[in-house]
Structures are given as C-alpha cells and as structure tokens.
Design a protein around this nucleic acid. Structure first.
Lengths: 115, 115
DNA sequence: CATACCTGCTAACTTCTCTTTGCATGTGCG
DNA sequence: CGCACATGCAAAGAGAAGTTAGCAGGTATG
C-alpha cells in the first residue's frame, strides 16, 4: 500500500536510471530466468562480486529486484535475488504526466515551507 | 532500412539513458504538449539555451525527438523540435530478450581475430 | 548602426557513476 | 587449522555526464 497510484516523477527517473545500464539489463535478464544468489550470479555474468553488489543495490532501490537471505543445506548464508514482475509502459503523454510530479532540483532548498 | 526489427539492447540502453533525467522528462513533457523552438523552450523551462541544446541532442540521438529548421515570418531561423510518438513497454522478459543483443563492453578489444 | 531576437559551438569546471581493490566476517570440510 | 565459498562494506581512481560562460554568425527593426 505504499505504492503510489502512478509512478511519481522522481521514482520514474530512478527506475529508468537503474535500467539504463548494460550490466543491470543483464542482471534483470538473468534473474528473469531464475533467482540467484550473489556469488553465483557474479560468476554467471562474469563480473566481480563487488560490482554486482552495487548494481543489485541500485536495482533494489528502484524496486525492480528484491533480496531474501536464506540458509543453504550446508549452513552457508545465501542472499537470493529475484526480479519483481513489473510492467512499465512509456509514452510521451505518460511522461508528461509524470514530469509534473518531479521534485525541484533545489540546489539550495525549496522556497515553500514556512518561509 | 537502418531501423532494426526490434530494439537492440544498445538502443534500449540509449533510450533509457536519455529518459533517465528530470530535465529531459520535462522537455518531453513540454514537446508532447506542442512543438517548440530552442530559445522559446529554454525560457519556458527556465534553463539555459546551451544546457537545453545538450539535452535535446541526447534525446534526438535516442530518436525520441526530431528537429526541423524553419524560417519564421520575419525571416528568423527557428529550429523546431517535436516528440516522436513512441510507445515503450518494459517487462523483465522484454528486457531479457534485449539483453541478449547487447554489445560487449570490450574495454580494450579482442586481439583474437582468428579465435 | 545599435538592439533584439534567432542559431550554433567549445572550453572548463563540477558532479555523479562506474569499477577495482582490499578488508572483515561466518560456516563447513579434509 | 587452513582452504573454499558465502556475505558485506568502504576507499579511491578513472571516466562519463551535467552545467556554465563565452564567442561567433544570421536577419529584422527603430
């Protein structure tokens, strides 16, 4: 119930930014096939674990993937990631609507408040 | 003849990257309302012309907007931009398909040749 | 001919993103 | 106990992106 009726501008930017990267597209692709744990996924994708962690965190921040810590049979802690079944449709009109809810860059701060 | 049957991975990244920016979302939004020329649009959005140029170029590179140079009644050269009526739908599966067509990062390049 | 629009470009600075490297921690097995 | 494999985080360097400021050129109008 914390999901907004329609993607707020800032959220949209975050989602788009998280998708606008080759590594992260491949991560989504791999996880769409099947869930995986960090180390295994890193091997599968041929990238370092540290790098994968960063990208996973970004995807998670955008709400596109989720993590669940589990214990393997031999007691190892495994952090399994899986994609969230999203459907994102973009058109100029949809973007126009989202753009109106964009937060001001506010290099300093917002004029509103009680000022 | 140069348009691929379905969005190639690299193209998708380019489109997503071009959209993942507040300024550019506002630009799309403004142009979705009605086409505009550079200087006028800059005033409307409250940003500098130089900055707008850069963003417009990025959007144009992704194929989301197009420019057409026209002459106003009083002989001024006006460069009108307008959005391309795109519809982009994203799901984990679609992304998975696009990810397979991603170009290799090739930090250096493959010496192989005969490999 | 100065002023006011329109266009475009580049150099230089700042800021963000990406990536690597290294450390710290925990469990199971020979 | 040392090796293998799992987790995580943070510092630091390289590179890309965003932004500003300034220059140059065009046409009309007072």
């Amino acid at each position: 119930m914390s999901s907004a009726p329609s993607p707020i501008g800032d959220d949209l930017v975050r989602v788009l930014a998280s998708l606008a990267n080759p590594h992260r597209l491949r991560i989504i692709a791999a996880l769409a096939r099947e869930r995986a744990y960090v180390s295994g996924l890193a091997r599968q994708l041929g990238i370092s674990r540290a790098l994968l962690q960063v990208h996973l965190r970004k995807l998670a921040a955008a709400g596109l993937v989720t993590a669940s810590l589990e214990l393997s049979e031999d007691g190892k802690a495994m952090n399994y990631y899986e994609v969230q079944p999203f459907v994102l449709t973009l058109t100029p009109e949809i973007i126009a609507a989202a753009a109106e809810t964009l937060t001001v860059p506010d290099s300093v701060e917002q004029p509103g408040a009680n000022r």
